[in-house]
């Protein structure tokens, strides 16, 4: 349900970028979400469709990319993927990790029409 407020922030950012860089149109926006982040892609998509209706961003495509969760075990230093925040080290069984990726929530790129 917090996907709606995430989407609001996303649209505010798109609007700021559009104004700052003087784009005439945003065709698509690519959002990268970490695998272990609390965002449901379907819910974000739904919020995006609902919140862009009848606005300048109606018709803009939302492209979502999931970033796999990677971490280094703090005990044996093995770098590995993690499928949850409570999964153990595949090598030594430790639960102490330094997360390298998997918690992102960011815009990575946009397809735009530039005014010349």
């Amino acid at each position: 349900m917090h996907e709606a407020s995430i989407c609001k922030s996303l649209l505010e950012m798109m609007q700021k970028e559009k104004e700052a860089k003087n784009y005439s149109k945003i065709y698509s926006v690519t959002v990268e979400t970490g695998e272990l982040q609390l965002v449901v892609p379907e819910s974000l998509d739904f919020a995006f469709q609902a919140l862009t209706k009848d606005t300048e961003f109606e018709g803009t495509k939302l492209i979502q990319k999931i970033i796999p969760a990677k971490a280094i075990c703090k005990d044996c230093r093995l770098e590995q993927t993690r499928d949850s925040l409570y999964s153990e080290c595949k090598n030594c069984g430790s639960f102490k990790f330094e997360m390298l990726s998997g918690m992102e929530l960011q815009i990575s790129k946009m397809e735009v029409e530039q005014n010349v």
């Binding site: 995430i6 996303l10 149109k25 929530l105 960011q106 815009i107 790129k109 735009v112 029409e113």
Partner: peptide, 12 residues
Amino acid sequence: HNHDEVSVEQKI
């Protein structure tokens, strides 16, 4: 108009 891909990299 120029149709371009621009990288943004901003936390939402």
